[in-house]
Design a protein around this nucleic acid. Structure first.
Length: 326
DNA sequence: TTGTGTTTTATTGCCTCC
DNA sequence: GGAGGCAATAAAACACAA
């Protein structure tokens, strides 16, 4: 039988039909009084390959030229008719490849997951299988590999998402801390504006216990607590209150938010939770501008941070996570 | 033993490439 | 147009709990 006759690809007669046809031919070709087993046995000579187990459904005929004999596994003492009947029955069922065959194929797949025709024939010979079977095995193996790869990629993306989300949450906390700090500083400026400013600012470091614990504990805020008041204090020694205010809050964005409403001036009156997305974005920019002015944007404690980048290296404006879905 | 879910082997139809 | 690859699917083999 010509190679590929049983496995003709799409539209070809199916394997089982081919097997039956082959058997019929064997039977009918006999011109002497031999048993069916003798006919088949002579057609499929014993295999020389060590991989030729008994589980393959295509262990007979085909391109391997009878390298493997299905009957090798038959007990000579058994009833021949029953054996043939069982064989005919089993041959119509799917048979799994042996462990050795699969191992060999796996090894081959690891080397190259594509199958050239020469390699296919070579593998078929070595394993006592049909070339078509080898092709099918590689095809299915590639499909399994692809599925696994997709799962792997998904896991990786998910991990990256979790990391980004965690970083985002950290930034939110950082933002809250900065907001609280701005409130603190604003209060002090206002107090100073009312006449007690000098003393209040000079005592800031001593009075840092009065600040919210979360703010003080935050590494960023610790930098601010030690640096910012000193700067303000220095300015106070050189300038009057109004010029100090305009220097510290030099940013245009801060100016737009810091609106002097007489004695009751307040910065960032709007609650964070009430901010629209645009407002929230502006708020982030404002906070970072303020942070820059306060001197921590390129602090040695936070290498790699620039004025418009978070500690994690991506623009604050790019923190839209809404597109991530599971 | 049996029902059920998973894995493996194989087919089919469509598509691409030469 | 034929060969080969791939996705979808069928069906047998297998694993395992009840």
């Amino acid at each position: 039988m010509a190679p590929g006759m049983l496995y003709g690809g799409a539209g070809a007669s199916n394997y089982f039909d081919g097997v039956l046809i082959q058997k019929q031919r064997v039977m009918s070709s006999s011109t002497t009084t031999t048993t069916p087993k003798e006919h088949l046995g002579s057609l499929f000579a014993p295999a020389s390959s060590s991989f030729l187990g008994s589980s393959s459904m295509v262990s007979f005929g085909g391109v391997n030229g009878g390298k493997r004999s299905f009957f090798d596994s038959f007990d000579q003492e058994d009833n021949e008719a029953d054996e043939l009947g069982e064989y005919l029955h089993q041959s119509e069922k799917k048979r799994r490849l042996t462990e050795n065959q699969v191992q060999f194929l796996e090894k081959s797949f690891d080397e190259e997951n594509k199958l050239e025709p020469e390699r296919k024939v070579q593998l078929a010979k070595e394993l006592g299988l049909q070339p078509r079977q080898i092709a099918i095995w590689f095809q299915n193996r590639r499909a399994r590999w692809k599925t696994k790869q997709l799962e792997k990629d998904y896991e990786e993306l998910r991990n990256r998402y979790d990391t980004l989300k965690s970083n985002y949450n950290n930034l939110l906390k950082e933002k809250e801390n900065l907001t609280a700090e701005v409130f603190q500083l604003t209060d002090k400026l206002l107090a100073k504006e009312k006449g007690n400013g000098q003393l209040a600012l000079c005592d800031t470091r001593k009075n840092s216990d009065a600040l919210p614990k979360e703010t003080v504990a935050d590494p960023i805020s610790r930098v601010e607590m030690s640096n910012v008041p000193a700067r303000v204090h220095k300015q106070q020694q050189q300038e009057d209150l109004s010029s100090a205010k305009s220097d510290v809050f030099d940013s245009e964005s801060v100016h737009s938010t810091f609106i002097d409403q007489g004695d009751s001036a307040y910065v960032f009156e709007t609650e964070q939770s009430e901010l629209s997305q645009d407002d929230d974005e502006n708020f982030s920019k404002t906070m970072l501008s303020t942070a820059n002015l306060l001197g921590k944007a390129e602090d040695d404690d936070y290498p790699g941070r620039s004025s418009n980048l978070s500690y994690f290296g991506f623009p604050v404006e790019d923190q839209g996570f809404g597109f991530w879905t599971y």
